[in-house]
């Protein structure tokens, strides 16, 4: 990873709401209680993270933990109280109004938790709105908006007003609106929360496809672990405004940095996250006889073969080489729970 790969980078970002937050002196040691005593609420506390090009970072945390606020700070919808946010090497706190508008027109897109549709515009006009702001001509933006609505399954509803659409349909209009511009940097705040499981999966696939094809950088907020595991390159867990841990899904479950993260991830089915390689022991001595298992697959995917295999030690194959040895008992313990 080189420096230029980092698209968004934030350092010690604080966002404090309250009477006079600009007068506060914020250090990593500042506690919530100290702030509350002066009538302030810290929604984001001392967050530092880097997001690479083409990466999907999933932000998780309890309700009120500051996820939406963090994303708003990254998009400079909110001015941060202290720290700095760099987007493609520029400090966005220092951008002028026109530069910021340019950045949003050309680079950024967002899907809002409560949709943020313009009530006086039809679904079609809502989707075309960012294109209109970019100065695209009428015919082409209408055509593009139509395509996007079809993509999200709203063909035939183009002329409906937000009020006339169901929650899930409104959410899809919001998704279509941000798909229409295909921004390089995407902020998705619980974008699929109101969708039924089928459409949700379709939409996830669509974003994965775009991300894979066009190297989009995506910050994705969700409460749904399955969704997070499907999409995430890395997961950030937030608590009371601070990022407790930011890491790959596997390390989050296998090596939680704090007791909170451990508790938060307790209910996850580990076998769907943990790849065989993570349990591998180094090759010492002779490699066991017989076929090897692919090291990059999750235990869940390999479950049938592990159960069916009778060797106590199973070789793992990665890119044509033996990458390690899997202890079958350890794997079975994870899959079935430790033997009583």
């Amino acid at each position: 990873m080189t420096e230029s790969d980092v698209v968004i980078s934030c350092r010690n970002v604080w966002k404090v709401f309250g009477d006079r937050p600009e007068r506060l002196r914020l250090t990593p040691a500042t506690t919530l209680e100290a702030l509350r005593a002066t009538n302030h609420i810290a929604a984001v506390r001392d967050v530092s993270l880097d997001i690479r090009r083409g990466e999907m970072l999933v932000v998780m945390g309890l309700s009120g933990s500051g996820k939406s606020t963090l994303v708003r700070c990254l998009a400079r919808l909110l001015d941060i109280t202290s720290g700095e946010v760099m987007v493609e090497g520029q400090d966005i706190g220092k951008l002028s109004e026109t530069e910021l508008i340019e950045l949003r027109r050309k680079k950024m897109g967002m899907v809002f938790q409560s949709f943020g549709l313009l009530p006086h515009r039809t679904a079609l006009e809502n989707v075309a709105f960012p294109l209109e702001m970019r100065g695209q001509d009428r015919a082409s933006r209408i055509a593009r908006a139509r395509d996007m609505l079809t993509l999200v399954g709203l063909k035939g509803r183009e002329g409906y007003f937000p009020r006339e659409l169901s929650g899930g349909q409104q959410q899809r209009v919001g998704i279509a609106r941000s798909l229409a511009v295909e921004p390089d940097i995407w902020f998705l705040d619980e974008p699929f929360s109101a969708l039924d499981p089928l459409i949700r999966r379709e939409m996830q696939d669509e974003f994965l496809r775009l991300k894979g094809m066009l190297a989009k950088t995506i910050v994705f907020i969700t409460h749904d672990f399955d969704e997070a595991l499907r999409l995430a390159d890395r997961i950030a867990i937030m608590k009371d405004g601070a990022v407790e841990q930011i890491d790959t899904p596997e390390r989050i479950v296998m090596a939680p940095a704090t007791p909170y993260v451990a508790k938060f991830t307790e209910a996850i089915d580990r076998t769907r996250v943990v790849r065989a390689l993570a349990l591998a022991q180094p090759v010492a001595g002779p490699v066991p006889e017989g076929g090897a298992l692919p090291a990059g697959e999750t235990l869940h995917a390999l479950a049938r073969r592990i159960v069916g295999d009778s060797r106590p030690m199973i070789p793992l194959m990665d890119q044509g080489r033996i990458a390690g040895i899997l202890d079958r008992k350890a794997a079975l313990d994870l899959l079935l729970g430790p033997a009583a």
């Binding site: 508008i101 938790q113 409560s114 009530p119 702001m133």
Partner: peptide, 14 residues
Amino acid sequence: SPEIIESGKMSGTT
């Protein structure tokens, strides 16, 4: 509603 305004801003409005 603030989200409507934010969505306007993110669309790159002056």
